[in-house]
Every structure is written in C-alpha cells, then in structure tokens.
C-alpha cells in the first residue's frame, strides 16, 4: 500500500526549495572561486537568496497549517526524533543563511541590489568587523547546509533503496494513490 503523502503544497515547496538551495550552494562555492563569472553569479545569488528567505517563511507557515502524514512504521522513535530535529534545523538554516547574507552586505555598506534599480534597505549599520564575522558565518552556515543536505539525502536513499519502505513516496513530486 502506498504511504500517505504530505499535502501537495508542502511537496511543492519542498522540491522548489530543494532545487533553489542546491543551486545556491553551487553558485556560492563557484562564485568565490571565479574571476570571470563572479559578477554574473553574485548578481543571481543575491536576489535568489532573498527569494529563499521569503519562501521559507511562507513554507513554514504553510507547514504549521498543514496536516502531516504519520511517520512510516519502519522509523524508530529515535529516528523520528532525529528527523524532527533535523527538519527544524534545516528550516532554521534556510531562514538564517539569507538573513546573514543580507546582514553582511548591509554591514559592508554594499547596495543590496535585487534586480535593476530594485534594492533592499540595509538591516545593519556599516561596520567592517561585523561584516567580517558575518561573512565567515555565511561560509560556515553554507557548509552546515550542505552537510545537512547530504545527511538528509543519504537517509532518504537508505530508506528508499535498502529498507524499501517507500519513504520517498511521502514527499514525491507526483501524486501517489492512497488506498
């Protein structure tokens, strides 16, 4: 029997943000190592980061309003606890990381250009020491995000391919028939 799925809205946010976050992590590591594409990549990184910040807030509210399917029987209570904590950790990272990005640009007194003349106001005063700390935090948080993604991805693959408990179906982008 097919497991119960997350509501369509939650699945939509999940896959949309998965694609965005993975792309952003890739752009992030590539841009800091690039001379030729640096400007182009930063110009994408800034607005997409802010978009993620907006989406994660909407997504979190949507999650609170949704009815979640029960955990599969193959998950022990420790596993359920870990899954819950890591979910909250991921939400926190997805919220904090773009905020740190916005904050560090503010502290460096860079204009926070979104697109064309559209730009955001600074959220912190001009302070290079603050910028340096936030810039470091942005890198460290990116590593955490990447590790969290690898752990999440690995755990889902383990459940899906080894335990074969159809854990992935719960979040599948398509509609699985529940009987």
């Amino acid at each position: 029997m097919d497991p119960q799925q997350f509501p369509a809205s939650m699945r939509f946010f999940h896959w949309l943000m998965a694609a965005m976050v993975l792309t952003m992590l890739g752009i992030g590591v590539a841009m800091v190592a690039s001379l030729a594409d640096y400007h182009q990549l930063v110009s994408i990184h800034r607005p997409v980061g802010i978009l993620i910040l907006v989406l994660v807030v909407i997504r979190f509210v949507n999650r609170r309003l949704s009815t979640l399917p029960p955990f599969p029987a193959t998950m022990s209570s420790q596993e359920r606890f870990i899954a819950h904590v890591s979910e909250m950790l991921l939400y926190t990272l997805l919220f904090v990381q773009p905020l740190v990005g916005w904050g560090m640009l503010s502290a460096a007194r860079y204009p926070i250009v979104m697109y064309g003349p559209l730009h955001l106001f600074p959220i912190l005063p001009h302070s290079v020491m603050l910028y340096a700390a936030l810039r470091k935090a942005h890198t460290v948080l990116a590593y955490f995000l990447f590790l969290a993604f690898i752990a999440h991805f690995g755990a889902v693959l383990f459940h899906t391919l080894i335990l074969r408990d159809r854990l992935l179906t719960r979040m599948a982008p398509y509609r699985a028939i529940t009987r």
Binding site: M31, S34, L35, A36, D37, Y38, H39, Q40, V42, A108, V128, M129, Y131, A132, A133, R135, K136
Partner: peptide
C-alpha cells in the same frame, strides 16, 4: 572586458580579508 568581473572579485576578496583584521 574580462578585467571588470575579475576586479570586482579580487577587490571583494581583499575587502573581506582586511575587514576582520
């Protein structure tokens, strides 16, 4: 001009390093 993006990238790197010193 390939120097433009490179200048932006290198200035930023220099700025980041000196900012915390």
């Amino acid at each position: 001009d390939p120097l433009l993006s490179a200048r932006s990238a290198v200035y930023s790197q220099s700025f980041t390093r000196r900012a915390g010193e």
